[in-house]
């Protein structure tokens, strides 16, 4: 992927208010694959009795990394929106650990991008959650895939 495009995408995220509010960080981007992390913060706790991060925060992270994967796909576009997203929560994320979501945009048509994503804490062998999503493709007029 051209460095220019990667820079443009990281600029777009740096200016995104919800991305900043959740303290997300772009770890990797290129050719339809994106990895974004989110630190452990007590503000993000969903279960006060265990200190486990809210499913909602994990889903925001998965949605963001999936969108980034679409934006960096070679045949996709710079602008996209989520159509549908399904998340399976396999286990509780370990309190105190950073969560990282890795998304892959594995297929793109003229108007739809298909993505799968996996979220991990520091134990990379046992995913916390997995997701599949569909995203819109906003093409410039007259430009086709």
């Amino acid at each position: 992927m051209p460095e220019q495009r990667a820079a443009l995408i990281s600029q777009f995220f740096a200016a995104m208010p919800h991305y900043k509010a959740l303290q997300m960080k772009l770890e990797e981007i290129g050719n339809g694959i994106a990895e974004i992390s989110m630190p452990y913060d007590e503000k993000f706790i969903g279960d006060p009795q265990t200190g486990v991060i809210s499913g909602g925060a994990v889903s925001a992270l998965m949605d963001t990394s999936s969108g980034a994967a679409v934006m960096c796909h070679p045949t996709a576009t710079i602008s996209t929106a989520t159509l549908g997203l399904r998340i399976d929560y396999m286990r509780a994320a370990t309190p105190g650990q950073k969560i990282t979501a890795r998304a892959e945009c594995f297929h793109v048509t003229r108007s739809v991008a298909f993505v799968r994503a996996t979220a991990f804490d520091e134990d990379r062998d046992h995913p916390v959650a997995s997701a599949t999503g569909t995203f819109t493709i906003e093409r410039a007029k007259g430009k086709t895939a």
Partner: peptide
């Protein structure tokens, strides 16, 4: 802070999902 796309602007899908 709930905004996901500052250009439109639109709420972040993750904020809506949460």
């Amino acid at each position: 802070m709930l905004i996901g796309n500052p250009v439109i602007p639109a709420l972040h899908g993750g904020a809506t999902s949460a």
